[in-house]
Simulated assay, not measured.
Amino acid sequence: MHTTQFNIEYILYICYMKKAFSLLSLCVVALLALTSSSCEKDETPKPDPVDTIVLSEKGKILTDTIWRYYEYYKNFQTSGSTLVWKTNRSANTLDLHLNKVKFNKDGSYWEITEKGDSLKGTWHFTNNETQIVVNSTSTFTSDIRVLTANQFEWEVVNGTTYGVMMKRFPESDKTQTVAQLLTSKKWKYETYFYNFPLASADLVWRIGKPNNTYTVLDQLTVEYKADGTTVETYKDGSIVRGTWRLNSDATHLTVTPNGGIDFECVIKVLNGTRFEWNRVDQSYYYYGEMIPADATVGGAARR
Rank of each mutant, 00 (worst) to 15 (best):
Q5I: 13
I8W: 15
I8L: 14
Y10Q: 10
Y16H: 12
M17D: 05
K19P: 04
L26P: 04
V29C: 13
A30M: 06
C39W: 10
E40G: 13
D42T: 09
P45Q: 01
P45T: 04
P47D: 03
D48T: 12
P49D: 07
T52E: 08
S56V: 04
K60I: 13
T65G: 06
I66L: 07
R68H: 07
Y70R: 10
E71D: 07
N75M: 08
Q77N: 14
Q77D: 14
T87W: 07
R89D: 05
D95K: 15
V101A: 10
D106I: 01
G107K: 01
G107V: 15
S108D: 00
W110V: 05
E111A: 10
S118C: 08
S118H: 05
T122H: 08
H124F: 09
N127E: 09
V133R: 03
S138R: 12
I144A: 10
L147W: 00
L147F: 00
E153I: 13
E153P: 07
E155K: 15
G163N: 10
F169A: 15
K174A: 11
T175Q: 01
Q176A: 12
Q176W: 06
L182V: 02
L182R: 11
T183E: 02
S184G: 04
S184D: 02
Y189C: 08
Y189R: 11
F196P: 02
S200N: 02
W205L: 11
K209D: 02
T213W: 02
T230K: 01
V231M: 11
E232G: 11
E232N: 14
K235R: 13
D236F: 07
V240D: 01
T243A: 13
N247V: 00
S248M: 10
T254M: 07
V255R: 04
G260M: 01
I261R: 14
I261A: 13
V266S: 09
I267Q: 04
I267F: 02
K268P: 05
V269W: 09
L270G: 00
L270C: 00
N271I: 01
T273F: 03
F275T: 00
N278A: 07
Q282V: 10
Y286F: 06
Y286H: 15
Y286V: 08
I291M: 06
T296L: 12
T296A: 11
G299S: 03
A300S: 13
A301K: 08
R302E: 05
